[in-house]
Design a protein around this nucleic acid. Structure first.
Lengths: 203, 203
DNA sequence: CCACTTCCGGACCGCTTAGTATAGAAAATT
DNA sequence: AATTTTCTATACTAAGCGGTCCGGAAGTGG
């Protein structure tokens, strides 16, 4: 469709990426509009609001972008062509590597992006909490699939696996933010996966 | 020592507890002086600064108080009268119960208290990071003690245990904040401890 | 070339922030 | 009772917050 009028002078995608980096580093609330406008190429408030609507709307776009890029390390969790065990292991290992890579902020935007929020920004917290819940459901689905395929037996111990993996996954955000390197987390994942194997063996 | 002059009218300890609850719930930055003064019994700015110095100084006192009370669930980690495995298990189980108890805010102040910080409040982040590092060292010490006592063998796998437990511990803060109950985490801990047992068996 | 659409820069909005200065009252010690 | 100390309340600062508005600039379609 024909787009008339003066075209915007900044690259909306580049600006979004810059905002993503800033939000990822500092989190939602401490990131001010001034910082955002500066890092997005010294755009004016008017340009900002015309392009993104509000700080919260921008953050929602940023989260979406994150999920579509960096967040794809979690994709194996919902890939039913993978064996359930491999899906979980790949998710953990890829998350560990991604969260510790130094070419972008460390840790996980979904876990750390809105930990400290005033009551008025509760919707933002809720947004990220929903994504974390999605991850938990992913682990549950993998374990359920393993039971269905006969790889694991449906015991009380098996039922604890999703929480075990989800807790470890979310904990990696803290470890990565605190400076732990990929190898350390990766080695811990190797050990953690032994839990799965020992349950599979006794089946 | 003799303390002359008019005594303060509010209970400093109660005020500190109120501030602890508020900081625990919201985190450092989003908690404003107005909120603090209100919850501490409608004290005046002058009284506040006379009694606590600054927002940051108050937070440091709050962290200290937290460590001396709720944070004591981690005490087993440095209790050398306990078997290393028991020390770790107790630390995890007590943390799980404490962090999910509803008579106070959920999650862990040390993990969640200053996730989202502007650059100017980096010292606050550093304060909590140092405490998290202390926890990691605690797990390391327990594993080292287990090796020294012959309970575990000094293998590459054994070396991954501290990171495994620390990551899980810190992850519990996220799970508790998201509404998970004690039993769910406790059951996951039971499964996680199997890792230790399987390594001890092969020794 | 003109009309129209859109964007940009900057002034500006009301409100909140952490923190201070001041003045006077109240309570303890001497 | 005089002195010392710290309280209270209130007004205040300078800066920053998210967000709005407007006049003019810049581009497009007819």
């Amino acid at each position: 469709m024909a787009r008339t009028g003066r075209p915007r002078e900044f690259d909306r995608d580049k600006a979004l990426d810059a905002a993503l980096t800033l939000f990822w580093t500092q989190g939602y609330e401490p990131t001010s509009l001034n910082q955002l406008k500066t890092c997005m190429g010294n755009i004016s408030p008017a340009s900002f609001y015309a392009a993104f609507g509000s700080k919260e709307a921008l953050f929602r776009e940023v989260v979406q972008r994150y999920l579509e890029t960096y967040g794809q390390v979690m994709a194996p969790l919902w890939d039913e062509t993978l064996a359930p065990r491999d899906a979980i292991e790949q998710t953990l290992r890829r998350s560990a590597r991604m969260q510790t890579t130094r070419s972008h902020p460390t840790g996980c935007l979904i876990v750390l992006g809105a930990c400290n929020c005033s009551p008025e920004n509760e919707p933002v917290q809720t947004l990220l909490a929903a994504q974390r819940e999605r991850s938990r459901k992913g682990f549950q689905a993998c374990v359920a699939r393993a039971v269905a395929e006969g790889e694991l037996t449906d015991t009380p111990v098996t039922k604890t696996l999703p929480t075990l993996f989800a807790t470890f996954l979310h904990g990696m955000a803290c470890e990565a933010r605190d400076g732990n390197r990929a190898k350390k987390l990766d080695d811990a994942i190797t050990t953690l996966m032994q839990v799965w194997d020992s349950l599979a063996l006794t089946a």
